[in-house]
């Protein structure tokens, strides 16, 4: 059987909020090492990869590898029934066609359980090559969400240009243009407020705002976000999930005609 108990249940709630706009359904691959999810959005422009390590769970048992196909809208509705401070347990028998979610209040005075049907999804998995990125930018997640939201007013694409001076986000459209430049922070007292740029070579790429704004739904998961870029390869936007895992969004670039 499969059983995973997460004391910080709010993390799972936030993970669903972070993927439910991009994906309608996806499979959770459960193994000894933990739980993984990988799925592309319907237009095959973006891909979400979630990794939750077994050690991050207060109790984790996975007798046999299990693939649980789920409708994420339904799963999100169920997780909405959990309070932010609830302990969340996911349970499934080995060849089950349902999964059970158990929510325990901290005082154990209230215990809820919800059972959901599983789906057979034959989604093609993509092999994501290990890449040594030309630029890796770490910045406050709220800052990145703000930049994407503000520049979306100007156009449907955002140009991200990373150089040794810093990183510039630009957009242009009918009403005009917008440019936001972030310099590498010299010294900040709080790591979470730092802008850190590791650059092997300068990179400039163009991305659709619509997807970037969907990725920033993961902002509540982590105070920091990292952007990894290399010429003409997908952008990686990564948020940590507490200290138990991470969520990575891959976005194909737009190529100038």
């Amino acid at each position: 059987m499969f059983e995973a108990r997460l004391v910080q249940g709010s993390l799972l709630k936030k993970v669903l909020d972070a993927i439910k706009e991009l994906l309608n359904e996806a499979s959770w691959d459960c193994a000894d090492s933990g739980i993984q999810l990988q799925a592309m959005d319907n237009s095959h422009v973006s891909l979400v990869s979630v990794n939750l390590r077994a050690e991050g769970f207060d109790k984790y048992r996975c007798d046999r590898n299990l693939i649980m196909g789920m409708d994420l809208t339904s799963m999100s509705k169920i997780l909405k029934c959990a309070a932010n401070d609830d302990i969340i347990t996911m349970k499934a028998q080995d060849n089950a066609d349902t999964v059970t979610f158990i929510f325990e209040s901290p005082s154990q005075e209230k215990v809820s359980d919800y059972e959901m049907k599983l789906m057979n999804l034959d989604q093609d998995h993509l092999g994501i090559p290990e890449t040594d990125y030309a630029c890796v930018i770490k910045l406050p997640s709220g800052e990145f969400a703000r930049i994407c939201r503000d520049l979306s007013n100007f156009g449907e694409s955002i140009v991200i240009a990373c150089s040794k001076e810093g990183v510039k986000f630009s957009a242009a459209g009918d009403i005009g243009t917008g440019n936001i430049k972030l310099a590498q922070t010299s010294s900040v007292d709080k790591e979470e407020e730092a802008v850190i740029i590791e650059m092997q070579e300068p990179v400039t790429l163009t991305f659709a705002c619509r997807y970037l704004n969907m990725f920033t739904k993961a902002t509540p998961l982590s105070p920091q976000v990292s952007l990894s870029m290399s010429p003409d390869v997908p952008l990686v936007v990564e948020y940590s999930i507490g200290d138990i895992g991470q969520i990575q969004y891959f976005l194909a670039p737009k190529i100038d005609d």
Binding site: M40, H44, V45, S46, L47, D124, H125, L126, G127, I128, P129, S157, T206, A208, V233, P234, F250, A252, P253, K254, I255, D256, D257
Partner: peptide, 14 residues
């Protein structure tokens, strides 16, 4: 204008 590319152009299905 810029043309959106498809992820499968970069990542091969396993």
């Amino acid at each position: 204008a810029a043309t959106q590319t498809d992820l499968r152009h970069f990542f091969k299905a396993r």
